[in-house]
Write a protein that binds this DNA or RNA. Sequence first.
DNA 1: TAACAGGGACGTA
DNA 2: TACGTCCCTGTT
Length: 272
Amino acid sequence: MVEKQLENFDLEQICNSGQCFRMEKMEENRYRVIAGERSLDIHQKGKACLFFCSAEEFTEVWETYFDLNRDYQVYIDQINPKDTYLLQASKLGKGIRILKQDLWEMIVSFLISQQNNIVRIRRCIENICREYGEERKIASGESYYAFPKPDALACLGEDDLKACNLGYRSKYVVRAAKGVVSGEIDLRLIEKMKYEEAKEELLKIFGVGVKVADCICLFGLHHLEAFPVDTHINQALEKHYKRGFPKRRYKGFEGVLQQYIFYYELFGEKIE
DNA sequence: TAACAGGGACGTA
DNA sequence: TACGTCCCTGTT
């Protein structure tokens, strides 16, 4: 078990920020996350966090996953003091972190996310994990399903994932799996690329458009300069940034601010 | 009951 | 660049 006092870290906010579809609130102050092959339970009361794993696993896996060695206050402090909207947003969502998630998992998750709501995205992902992921046990005797690897999905017919409720997105996921297995999509190579290059490469994947590519860059490659624009963000930008969002001012961490805005649009008190 | 929208992207014109 | 279409489900 690892105990930590953490600033700007709030599991409820991270859970609701819509970047991770396999994080679950078990009960008050208790969360469970499944990431790729692993599962972790965490308790949080204010700044006090209890990670139910060994010290080795914490430093090797979860510290990176939750981006704990980064000071997010630095970004918040750079917000233009005149920008009351962004200040409010960052105040509400200051506990959000940009998770460093598995690239393959993010490609599939955000292929599924298009024209879809978060509740159903979660269900779709649970469905394919239960059907095609390997079952794992945790100490308590409970089990969970790891995220299916590309080769587990590459052998399917293009419509087979419709049984998991993916609808027309089924063929996107199956084709992506086939691409990874054949080597046409080289995940290791994409991981080494800079943001622009990685985005360009991701856009070649059938079913990946600009918004989805940016989500994959932000949550799967940890390119903090990626700024995904979905319908919510678009509405916020039209309302509060009629002359465009000041990306130059916030160069290099636009994605962090995007998350504050997204979270605020979903959970914040609207200010006119 | 029926219509609609929900973290878009593709194909066609 | 614009527009119809894709699949499913919770909501109104």
